[in-house]
Structure formats: C-alpha cells, structure tokens
Design a protein around this nucleic acid. Sequence first.
DNA 1: AGGACTATACGGCAATGCCGTAGTCCGTTC
DNA 2: GAACGGACTACGGCATTGCCGTATAGTCCT
Lengths: 98, 98
Amino acid sequence: MSKRAFDKIKTGLDDARAYLDGTADKRRYRVYVPETMDVKKIRARLGLSQEAFAATYGFALSAVRDWEQGRRRPERSARILLKIVQKEPDAVTRALAR
Amino acid sequence: MSKRAFDKIKTGLDDARAYLDGTADKRRYRVYVPETMDVKKIRARLGLSQEAFAATYGFALSAVRDWEQGRRRPERSARILLKIVQKEPDAVTRALAR
DNA sequence: AGGACTATACGGCAATGCCGTAGTCCGTTC
DNA sequence: GAACGGACTACGGCATTGCCGTATAGTCCT
C-alpha cells in the first residue's frame, strides 16, 4: 500500500473518529456519495446470485438487474446503501434482522 | 490497523465464505423491509437538523423534507438505509468516511 | 425591529422503482 | 443429445419518487 493511499484511509478514519467523538462540527460534516457503483462487483465479492443478493439486503431484484445491466443508475440512497453493503455487510444484516 | 478492525473484516470474510460453502442458506435468507419509516423520529434521536442529518448520512435535503412532511415515502433502498442509520449510525459513518 | 436558523409547503420535470415476460447461456441429468 | 433448472440479459411501461428551486412561517437571540 502506498503512503498516499494510507494517508487517505487514515484521514477517513480520523474524520470518522472525530465525528463519533463529537469533536467534529456536526453541522458542517458532510459525506461523499459516489455517483456510480459497480454493483456486480460488490455482489460478486459476496458470492451471491442476484436473487440472493436482493433478498439478503432488501433490494428489489428488478432494481439490481437494472443496475447491473446499466439500464438505470442506483439513486442516491441506494448508492449509499450499496457502499455500506460493500464495506460493512454485517451491519446491514444486523440492522435488518427481525 | 487495529485488531478490532481486523476482526470486523475477518467476520465479513467468514460470512462470505459461509455463503460460498453453503453453510449459510443463500436462497431462504430474506430480510424484512418496513413499508413506512418515521424519519423525523430517527433524526430527532440523533439530535440533528434536517440539513445536518442529510449532510451526515448522504441524503438529499429535499428528500428528507419530503419524507418528514409526508409528501413522499422513502423508497425501498432509502428505507433500508434509514433503518441502518437508526440502528447502527456509526456503521454508516464508517462506510462513508473518506 | 432585524437577522439567523429551521422547518413547512409545493410546483414540476426527469429519472428510477418495480412488475412482468421473453430469450440466452450453461452445467447437469436422463 | 434432448430436456431441465438456475442465473442472467433485455426491455416495455406505468406509477412514484428524487431533486431542484422558491416562497412562507415559526423561534430564538441581540
């Protein structure tokens, strides 16, 4: 890993910690939401079929298909959710457990 | 990297492996997605203004307004995300940190 | 009174969500 | 090799939401 990459991650972690600590100004904190997401890649890493992926994280199967086929782009909230599925899939599972 | 962070990643990998191994049933697992969400309540508990709430979790301010005013209902992915924000706000922050 | 902050209210177009169905590819089983 | 089921591509089509902007109202502070 390059130093640059490390610094980037560290900055992110510092920001997150500052936020959680309440050190950061909650009014000014602003997250970055990516404009595009490689849904197929995220799903592949989890080793799930489109159907299982949708059922596991709550997506509509039709939406997953549209996204993977490039027919439609996941809208903002979906992109955020996909990011969480990618980085912290367990958190999603816990939050949605009944 | 902390041990805690490592364990988190490992847990994720273990889950993925469980899926691949067939230890977990890919087909039957299905989460429940609520049809309605009390956005105002979720936000109130976090003690954030509409603007700060939107900026912190990535929502569009206009969407938050529409939801709270009962003008529109958050669609599926947004409802899932809201549930995660409610139950595991830190996970969202971590996933979206740069 | 004036200003800063927060929330309500809503017009309006573009875009997505979601449903359904038909067709393709592939590994497997008879 | 024909039949089968699973996974995926492709897409028509309507209802609904996303998201933009702007105007209005309430609250608190100086």
